[in-house]
Simulated assay, not measured.
Amino acid sequence: MAPAISLTENALEHLNKMRSEKSEDLCLRIGVKQGGCSGMSYTMEFESRANARPDDSIMEYDGFVIVCDPKSLLFLFGMQLDFSDALIGGGFSFKNPNATQTCGCGKSFAAEM
């Protein structure tokens, strides 16, 4: 079965590099919030693994942990997180099958539920 949120090798490598610069006990919280040009914005932040809530979904990739709250997971299920170090258009990108519309910057989206 495919994971609820997947990472490309490039994303995993970059996230591990970012995490190693901070602390080894951190996980990545991925979510959504209201806002952005298309209605909903992606959120990502490192946090202590101890902060995971009982209702969070926890996904592990080669020792790297992602947590996501249940409401956000409704909008993110099946999403793939990628990373590119290209000078133009580089950074993290979200390939979200639930997005019915995506803004030009790729950091916000619209979805019908």
Rank of each mutant, 00 (worst) to 15 (best):
M1C: 11
A2D: 15
A2S: 14
A2T: 14
A4D: 02
I5L: 04
S6K: 06
T8N: 06
N10K: 13
N10F: 10
H14P: 03
L15M: 00
M18I: 04
R19H: 00
S20L: 03
S20F: 03
S20K: 00
E21K: 08
K22M: 07
K22L: 04
K22G: 03
E24C: 03
D25C: 06
D25F: 08
L26E: 02
L28M: 10
L28A: 05
I30V: 15
V32E: 10
V32H: 05
K33S: 09
K33A: 10
K33V: 12
K33F: 06
G35I: 01
G36C: 08
G36W: 07
C37T: 01
S38E: 11
M40G: 03
M40T: 05
M40Q: 08
M40P: 03
T43S: 01
F46W: 05
E47F: 11
A50H: 11
A50N: 11
N51T: 01
A52S: 13
P54Q: 00
P54W: 01
D55P: 01
D55K: 03
I58P: 01
I58W: 01
I58F: 02
M59K: 00
E60N: 10
Y61C: 09
D62E: 15
D62I: 04
V65E: 11
C68R: 09
D69Y: 07
P70I: 09
S72M: 07
L73Y: 04
L73K: 14
L73D: 03
L74P: 01
F75P: 03
L76C: 13
L76V: 12
L76W: 12
F77I: 15
F77N: 15
Q80C: 14
D82H: 08
F83A: 04
S84D: 11
D85I: 09
D85F: 09
D85K: 14
A86S: 08
L87A: 14
I88C: 00
G89D: 12
F92N: 09
F92K: 09
F92Y: 15
S93D: 04
S93C: 07
N96V: 15
A99Y: 12
Q101R: 14
Q101I: 02
T102L: 14
T102P: 07
C103M: 05
G104V: 01
G104D: 00
C105F: 10
C105Q: 10
G106L: 02
G106D: 08
K107Q: 02
S108C: 13
S108A: 13
F109H: 05
F109P: 04
A111T: 14
A111S: 13
A111V: 13
A111M: 11
E112Y: 06
M113P: 03
